[in-house]
């Protein structure tokens, strides 16, 4: 009986150890999901927000279509004035276009910001090819500095015909400091 009980205790201890390893490994797996998620977004092109896009293979300008591009700007947590110079423009798919944004630092200290683009409708993101953008690097503005920043883009002629208007929206976030926390 006692030998059997000791055998059982040893077997139980062994099972316990294995299961603890599984639990710890799954805690690690939760963190491993972070780089996996980034890699998947990279590979599928969902989140190449901060890099220049490749020029579309078909560079033929589709003069039969006109797409309205609406420009939008937001700031979060930093007192900059940030707006597009023109609110919207009309372009042909395949045509190289340049728009400008103006930003002004209203603080009396230099501030570094990062702009993150987003698109509406969401499906237009993969057809909106930015060749040059102020969002590809962080922007540091001196106190009171005003800066005009260009965005050069091409709309891929493969954009589905149902999309007539594309909204390009930038949000500037402050880099460093206690982001996203009130007060």
């Amino acid at each position: 009986m006692s030998a059997g009980a000791a055998g059982l205790a040893a077997a139980n201890r062994q099972t316990l150890q294995k299961l603890v390893v599984v639990a710890l490994a799954m805690f690690g797996f939760g963190y491993a999901l972070v780089p996996m998620y980034e890699a998947i977004c990279e590979v599928t092109g969902i989140r190449n927000l901060l890099r220049a896009d490749a020029v579309p293979a078909n560079t033929q300008v589709d003069a039969t279509r006109v797409v309205t591009v609406e420009l939008d700007s937001n700031t979060r947590g930093l007192p900059w004035t940030f707006r597009p110079v023109a609110g919207s423009l009309r372009v042909h798919p395949g045509e190289l276009a340049t728009v400008e944004y103006e930003v002004r630092n209203n603080l009396d200290r230099p501030v570094t910001g990062q702009a993150i683009p987003s698109y509406a409708p969401a499906e237009s993101a993969q057809y909106f090819r930015k060749l040059e953008c102020f969002c590809f690097q962080q922007q540091t503005l001196a106190p009171g500095e005003v800066r005009r920043m260009p965005v050069v883009f091409v709309i891929d002629p493969a954009l589905p015909g149902s999309v007539a208007t594309v909204s390009l929206s930038y949000t500037f976030f402050e880099v460093a400091g206690r982001q996203g926390r009130p007060g």
């Binding site: 299961l19 599984v22 799954m26 805690f27 797996f29 939760g30 999901l33 972070v34 996203g180």
Partner: peptide
């Protein structure tokens, strides 16, 4: 055992973000 540690990871990330 497979998923409770993942939740613990998610809320820990929230905590360190905060």
């Amino acid at each position: 055992i497979a998923v409770m540690p993942v939740l613990a990871g998610a809320v820990t990330m929230t905590l360190t973000d905060r």
